[in-house]
Amino acid sequence: MSVKQALLALLEQEPMYGYQLRTEFELRTGSTWPLNVGQVYTTLTRLERDGLVEGAGADDEGHQMYRLTPKGRDEVASWFTTPVPRTQPPRDELAIKLALAVTVPGVDVGAVIQQQRSATMQALQDYTRLKRSGRPDAANGADERGEMAWSLVLDSLVFAAEAEIRWLDHCEARLRRAAQDRSRAAATQPSTQPSTQNTGALR
């Protein structure tokens, strides 16, 4: 997730200060990826250094406001029109865990898969309940676009959980087939035990 581009996209609408940006980001993404306000201000400092935002003075309460520069607007436009690259996917902790589990002796890979499946199923049920109950702040007059943004993020989490469960099922099936193949291979191997047949006394 690019906090940098997200903050720039929010600033394209109007000048804001750090805490406002944090609130808006979490509101629009259903608080799925909470931001530390210190991270927001650190990012704003870097954006200002790179000429993408500039100070816009202080508001009536003394908050330092930030606004986009023309270079910043170009950056936002480029972000929205450029596909998210998949050539270098982010590290997937679960995939790494299973890749190591199948190569480390003594690890019960089946148990690892079952535990993860239970946890992912629980998360999927939580997302589904949340989807049925609606956005938490809907009663406070959340606007239609905010509702749509929240719903799309929730859909993404649901689809990701469903895909993870299918992948875990696939991993379990492959492990089962591999175990069966090893059993069949062992059964067809010729015996290497020394013969105990009596060949008669040496003369």
Rank of each mutant, 00 (worst) to 15 (best):
A173K: 02
A187D: 07
A142C: 01
T32Q: 11
L35Q: 11
S191P: 00
W79G: 02
E162S: 08
G146S: 09
R73T: 11
T81G: 10
S78V: 06
I165N: 09
E12M: 11
G55Q: 08
S118A: 15
Y17R: 01
T103P: 01
I113W: 00
L21E: 08
S118Y: 12
S2M: 04
F159I: 09
T192M: 12
Y17K: 03
G51S: 00
Q114S: 14
A161Y: 00
P90I: 00
D155C: 07
A119G: 07
E54W: 01
W167Y: 11
E75L: 04
E24D: 14
D50H: 02
A186F: 01
I113P: 03
S151T: 14
Y19G: 05
D50C: 02
E164L: 12
V84E: 08
V3F: 07
R176T: 15
F80G: 07
M148E: 12
K97A: 13
V76Q: 05
M148K: 06
P15H: 01
A139N: 04
P90W: 00
W150Q: 11
Q114G: 10
R182C: 04
R184G: 07
K4C: 08
R203P: 15
A99T: 15
A173Q: 05
R132P: 02
Y127V: 03
A111W: 05
A138E: 08
L47F: 03
N198L: 13
E144F: 14
T87D: 15
L154I: 07
F80N: 09
E147P: 04
G134V: 03
Y17N: 05
G55Y: 09
T196D: 09
D92V: 01
A179P: 06
T29W: 02
R86H: 14
L8Y: 03
Q189E: 12
W167E: 06
D126V: 13
P194Y: 01
A179E: 10
A201I: 13
S78I: 11
L44S: 04
R67D: 06
I113D: 01
S183W: 03
T188D: 08
R132D: 14
V112C: 13
L124V: 04
Q88W: 15
R22K: 15
G72Y: 06
V3E: 02
A163C: 04
D59W: 02
L44P: 01
P70F: 09
D50S: 04
P15V: 00
R177A: 14
T43Y: 02
N140P: 03
L68Q: 09
A101W: 03
T69V: 01
T42P: 10
Y19R: 15
P85I: 01
V84Y: 09
W150V: 12
F80R: 15
R132F: 13
A138M: 08
T87G: 06
G146M: 06
A99M: 15
G134I: 07
S151V: 05
A185F: 07
A142K: 05
T128Q: 15
F25E: 05
F25M: 09
A101Q: 01
R22A: 04
Q5P: 07
H170Q: 12
R166S: 10
D74G: 11
A161L: 01
R91L: 15
T188Y: 03
S31I: 01
A99P: 10
G62K: 02
W33F: 14
L154A: 08
A173E: 10
D137R: 08
T192N: 11
T196E: 07
E172L: 04
E93W: 13
A173N: 02
I96T: 13
D143V: 00
